[in-house]
């Protein structure tokens, strides 16, 4: 018996929002262990979201509809990407909706609206956050594209499912190009998801915050949605990295047992990825904002080197 592709699609759509808080919880646990603190436990993010959902909403006087639509849009868009990125199967009917470039642009929509929402209230914080977010994204996007392009060179496709199947079925090769672009991708992912060393998600210190500054005025279920979307975004970026660079074990048939195994394998990869991220975050300090061009420049450099290495060496 095999599961219908639409079923897997639905499975992924459900899996992502459900797993995302747990993933964030896992990262927090590892981080606390690393820094010698006691951890709040795997389920703490779930409890946070639930608490926020229950709370009432307080809106600023001049908040417009943009401010109110943004959380839904952010949540919805990121949920959609869960249907596009192959997490446990390449046989997704909706995967053709967007290739990897379109996927990046979908994230850009979220960013666009979040930035607008930051400016909607009319506080200095919101504007500052939006301004910095847009600067970071404008520098990160070229690097992201170069990293993606190197991967798509290897499989001569920008379609994610195609990339996964080519990479997972090809024979083993040492590819410096992919190594370079993987490092570049990690650097960019840290920037895009607002982690150390670009942004510190755990602080509300006015001079360092970027993402938090934009969503400072949110409360209640809006904040819950935004937070949840943020968690999902982190996980989606990890899944994207896994699909693009370490796709082994994603492709396969649709029978439930194998699906379950692949799901577990995926979770294991995620867990390892979380540890890697914690290692990076613990090892580095938050950067000054105007050091970021250098940081993202390095990411661009690595991605370009990856592409050059592909042409020169492979």
């Amino acid at each position: 018996m095999t599961l219908h592709p639409m079923g897997i699609e639905l499975l992924q759509l459900i899996l992502l929002p459900l797993l995302a808080p747990a993933f964030v919880g896992w990262v927090k646990i590892v981080k606390c262990r690393m820094q010698g603190r006691t951890s709040p436990g795997l389920l703490q993010p779930y409890r946070d979201i639930r608490r926020l959902f229950i709370k009432d909403v307080v809106l600023a006087d001049n908040a417009s509809w943009i401010f109110r639509v943004t959380p839904y849009l952010a949540f919805g868009v990121i949920l959609m990407t869960a249907g596009i990125i192959p997490l446990i199967s390449v046989d997704l009917p909706l995967a053709a909706t967007a290739d990897i470039i379109a996927l990046v642009m979908l994230f850009a929509i979220v960013r666009f609206f979040t930035a607008l929402a930051g400016m909607d209230i009319g506080t200095a914080f919101g504007g500052m956050g939006s301004s910095r977010e847009m600067m970071i994204s404008s520098l990160a996007e070229p690097a992201m594209l170069m990293a993606i392009f190197t991967v798509s060179l290897a499989s001569s496709s920008t379609s994610l499912t195609q990339m996964v199947s080519v990479m997972a079925n090809g024979h083993f090769m040492i590819r410096p190009s992919l190594a370079f672009s993987l490092i570049a991708f990690i650097l960019i992912a840290l920037a895009e998801t607002g982690r150390i060393p670009v942004d510190n998600p755990a602080t509300h210190l006015e001079l360092t915050m970027i993402h938090e500054a934009m969503i400072l005025e949110y409360s209640g279920r809006y904040l819950a949605l935004i937070e949840w979307a943020g968690m999902m975004k982190l996980m989606v970026f990890f899944s994207l990295g896994i699909a693009a660079f370490l796709p082994w074990g994603i492709a396969g048939s649709g029978d439930p047992l194998s699906l379950l195994l692949r799901g577990l394998f995926f979770v294991a990869k995620l867990a390892v990825g979380g540890v890697v991220m914690v290692l990076i975050e613990t090892g580095l300090a938050k950067m000054r904002i105007f050091r970021l061009p250098e940081y993202l420049g390095s990411a661009f450099l690595l991605a370009t080197l990856g592409m050059i290495a592909f042409f020169i060496l492979e």
């Binding site: 943009i66 850009a108 009319g122 600067m135 994204s137 404008s138 996007e141 070229p142 170069m146």
Partner: peptide, 29 residues
Amino acid sequence: PLAASLLALTGALAAACFVKAFGVTFLGA
């Protein structure tokens, strides 16, 4: 392909620019 990255830069900067244009003109007070 490097040209493609410049195009990506353009796109992202355009987004930043229209966040600014729309945000400052229509949002806030």
